[in-house]
């Protein structure tokens, strides 16, 4: 028999926060994945909302190429407020 597919589980710990990756599990279908995620990742009130997605549906960046991918952000210090000079005595900046 074919193994049940792998799902990635994302949990929102409380309203107002985003869903965060909690781990993964095998299930026959998405509904079962949610039910199992409740038992595996939420035994102590860790969440109030669960997302599950087939692991095979996730497209990820390639760690071998992360240098090229993230390099353009490295030298743009002018994107941060600390780059700019604030004249002495000026407030609310």
């Amino acid at each position: 028999m074919k193994t049940w597919p792998l799902y990635e589980v994302f949990i929102r710990s409380k309203a107002g926060l985003s869903h965060k990756h909690a781990g993964s599990l095998h299930a026959a279908d998405p509904q079962m994945a949610i039910e199992n995620a409740r038992d595996v990742y939420c035994r102590r009130g860790e969440g109030n909302s669960i997302w599950v997605v087939l692991s095979s549906e996730i497209t990820a960046s390639n760690p071998a190429e992360s240098e090229e991918l993230f390099d353009p952000a490295e030298d743009k210090v002018y994107r941060h407020p600390t780059f700019y000079h604030v004249p002495e005595g000026v407030k609310h900046l």
Binding site: W4, A28, D29, M32
Partner: peptide, 16 residues
């Protein structure tokens, strides 16, 4: 537990 795993797989296929 094999029959449970098989039944869940069959049910998932049927729903799909």
């Amino acid at each position: 537990g094999a029959w449970v795993r098989e039944a869940a797989t069959a049910y998932a296929a049927k729903k799909e």
